[in-house]
């Protein structure tokens, strides 16, 4: 039924396929940890994709491209931050508007960049390690962003769990009134988190336009931002689970195409909806444990206004 699929190759390609949603989801996780729900991930990703692309093509450096993508995503996130933190606008609606605006703006910025090849990002040179059967392909055959995405997951996990910064972010997200009473600048902390989220989403977008697809076309992110949002919930706001969620989702997507290519007998129409159904199924299993709550930050989606 499954035909001939090489598991090492499958794992290697799902690692690449998952990078954009993983980066974006991680950024959103930090945002949500601080108590802010930004549904504009798709918009920030696509702005990151075009900003990264333009920067890389103009400067010839893919590295600067990623910096440009992060800056672009953060710039769009700044609009969100001003609206929701300073002007106390509704977060859900502002996030959706952000996506609409980002899609339009990216298409405007991208005029004239169709059909250009960006400078390529090579795999990290691991030398002979790459040739280890199986493991070499999985562990040592990728570009730097794949490793970076795992590192940043680890770093976020560490910061959130063990540092004072992480404690403050969590405090702000759980109970902003208490955090304010303790003297923390709630809105400034949230602003920083929103910018971080934008930068990560922008990098994720840049990964699509610079490495995964290497090109610019309108609407290139094609819904990846929504998947990233789903993964945050799926991960119940835990960094390592973002990794698992992204790999799972990316893995099923890659697997269903591989199954088709290998001539599997499962009908295509069911395969194409499988990533979503399996995500729901896993989520149900995870959340149905004995009375466990979902671990959502208590102040998620609520704006904070200092009364004193």
């Amino acid at each position: 039924m499954f035909g001939a699929i090489n598991p090492a190759v499958l794992i290697a390609s799902l690692m690449v396929a998952s990078v954009p949603i993983m980066l974006a989801a991680l950024g959103e996780l930090v945002v949500e940890k601080s108590g802010v729900l930004n549904l504009g991930v798709e918009g920030m990703m696509i702005i990151g994709a075009i900003c990264g692309f333009i920067t890389a093509v103009t400067t010839g450096s893919p590295l600067l491209g990623f910096a440009g993508g992060a800056a672009g995503g953060a710039a769009l996130a700044l609009i969100f931050a001003v609206l929701t933190q300073s002007l106390l606008a509704n977060q859900v609606a502002t996030g959706l508007a952000l996506t609409l605006f980002g899609l339009g703006l990216s298409s405007l910025m991208g005029q004239g960049y169709n059909g250009i090849k960006p400078p390529l990002t090579a795999a990290v040179p691991f030398g002979p390690l790459r040739d280890i059967p199986g493991l070499g392909r999985i562990l040592f055959s990728h570009d730097w962003v794949v490793y970076f995405s795992i590192l940043i997951i680890a770093a976020t996990w560490y910061v959130l769990k063990y540092t004072r910064t992480g404690l403050i972010i969590r405090a702000v997200g759980e109970n902003h009134d208490a955090a304010h009473a303790l003297g923390y600048k709630v809105n400034r902390i949230r602003l920083a988190c929103i910018l971080f989220g934008g930068a990560m989403a922008g990098m994720g977008g840049a990964y699509i336009s610079l490495i995964r697809v290497p090109q610019w076309t309108d609407g290139i992110t094609a819904g990846a931002g929504w998947i990233a949002l789903a993964i945050v919930v799926f991960a119940s706001w835990k960094p390592w689970r973002v990794l698992i969620g992204a790999y799972l989702f990316g893995g099923i997507t890659v697997l269903q195409l591989n199954l088709q290519a290998a001539g599997s007998s499962i009908p295509v129409e069911y395969l194409s909806m499988s990533p979503y159904l399996i995500t729901i199924l896993v989520l149900v299993i995870m959340s149905s444990g004995k009375g466990r709550t979902l671990n959502a930050p208590a102040a998620l989606g609520q704006n904070f206004h200092a009364t004193r």
Binding site: T94, G104, L105, L108, Q111
Partner: peptide, 26 residues
């Protein structure tokens, strides 16, 4: 006009509508 400009324009309209709402509550 490119249709993308209209999309961006709609986005702006929403931003402003959401932003000025602050005046009715504060």
């Amino acid at each position: 006009l490119p249709s993308a400009a209209i999309q961006a324009f709609q986005g702006m309209l929403l931003f402003f509508l959401l932003a000025v709402d602050v005046l009715s509550n504060y």
